[in-house]
Amino acid sequence: MSVNKNSFKHALAQKQHQLGLWVSLCNAYSAEIVAGAGFDWLLLDTEHSPNDVSGVLAQLQSAAAYPVSAAVRPSWNDAIQQKRFLDIGAQTLLIPYVQNAEEAARAVAGMRYPPRGNRGVGGTMRASHFGRNKNYMHECESELCLLVQVETQEGLDNLEAITRVDGVDGVFIGPADLSASMGHLGNPGHHEVQSAIEDAIRLVRALGKAPGTLTLDTQLARHYMECGSLFTAVGMDVALLAKAADGLVGAFS
């Protein structure tokens, strides 16, 4: 028995664009619905949604039946959260609010067992097929993918140093918090914010790592891809449901 292959990580390494969807409904049934839609990856969010470890586990299990990769965003750059999500089988983590190389290195440490990192050692967790894979601790690192989220002006100022940290596979540019940090709260479409996002995508790509971002605007998503984004989330399950519900009511108004 071997470690599950992380197709998302390998696709990024081969510069193959991955189309994604943000999943915030915190429900295994709805996660299964979108898992079968044809996206390359789903982001199971715990930062801005009422998700917890058991809820994420159920979503990982429901998505596992489909050819889609499931990434998890912890609520903070915290080794304990990383350990818990990795142990239940998450292979890709998106760590929010990384502002410098030291914080990026801390996130890397949470992905690795000692002596290379500080991930706690468990023997019978889901990630190791409940202990059946005796080599899990020695093999897993090659299939784990770390994405760090840059979403402040300070993070942008340190973007090159963050990107160069060994163990960082990709850098996600967070438009919402970035716009707030740049003085344009609630307006990620501001030209200064957009210019910063485009420049960040190009820099990360030039440094040999995978850049990514999120937008609900189809045209803007295509533009980010043209700039070099390799993992682009183009929608959110909550937004899709709200829009469809509003549209249905509107058809009878």
Rank of each mutant, 00 (worst) to 15 (best):
R126D: 01
D52F: 05
Q16S: 00
N135R: 03
F8Y: 00
W76I: 04
L178F: 10
L185W: 01
W76H: 14
Y224Q: 12
V193W: 10
D199E: 14
N133A: 00
I197P: 00
G250S: 09
K9P: 00
A101M: 08
Y113F: 09
T46K: 13
K5A: 14
V108F: 09
A239W: 04
E198Y: 03
T124M: 03
D40Q: 03
L25W: 12
H48E: 13
E151G: 12
P96E: 01
Q99E: 15
Q81V: 04
S75T: 09
V193Y: 10
S195D: 10
G208H: 06
N158D: 09
F172E: 05
D40S: 02
N51W: 00
F252M: 15
N6Y: 07
G20T: 13
A101N: 08
L216P: 01
L178P: 04
Q153M: 11
I201Y: 04
V23D: 00
E160R: 14
L60R: 03
D78I: 06
P74F: 11
R132Y: 06
E102S: 11
T152F: 07
S229R: 12
V148L: 08
P115V: 08
T213M: 04
S69N: 09
D78K: 06
Y224K: 13
S2G: 01
E198V: 13
M137S: 03
S229K: 08
D40F: 03
E192I: 10
L240C: 11
Q81R: 04
V165L: 09
L43S: 09
D45C: 10
R205F: 09
Y97A: 11
P74Q: 06
R84E: 07
H184T: 07
L207E: 15
P50L: 10
A239G: 02
S253V: 14
Q149L: 14
A71V: 13
L240Q: 12
V53R: 08
L19Q: 10
T232V: 14
A107E: 06
G131N: 07
A206E: 15
K83G: 07
Q16N: 02
A176V: 13
L146K: 08
A65H: 02
M111C: 05
H191C: 04
N158T: 10
Q194H: 04
A242T: 12
A64M: 03
Q219D: 15
A180V: 11
V121P: 00
S24E: 09
E154L: 15
Y113M: 01
N4P: 02
P188K: 08
Y97R: 11
P67M: 06
Y136R: 01
A31E: 08
G208M: 02
S2I: 03
E154Q: 15
L214K: 07
A210D: 05
S69I: 05
L42T: 14
I33E: 05
P74Y: 06
G186D: 06
E151S: 10
D40M: 03
I80K: 06
K5D: 02
L207C: 13
D217H: 10
E198A: 14
S179N: 08
N100Y: 01
L42K: 05
P114D: 03
E103W: 02
M236W: 04
L94W: 00
S69L: 05
T124L: 01
A79V: 13
A79C: 04
E32C: 13
H184D: 06
M137Q: 10
V68D: 02
G131Q: 09
G167D: 11
H129G: 02
V68K: 01
L156C: 08
S181E: 05
Q18A: 12
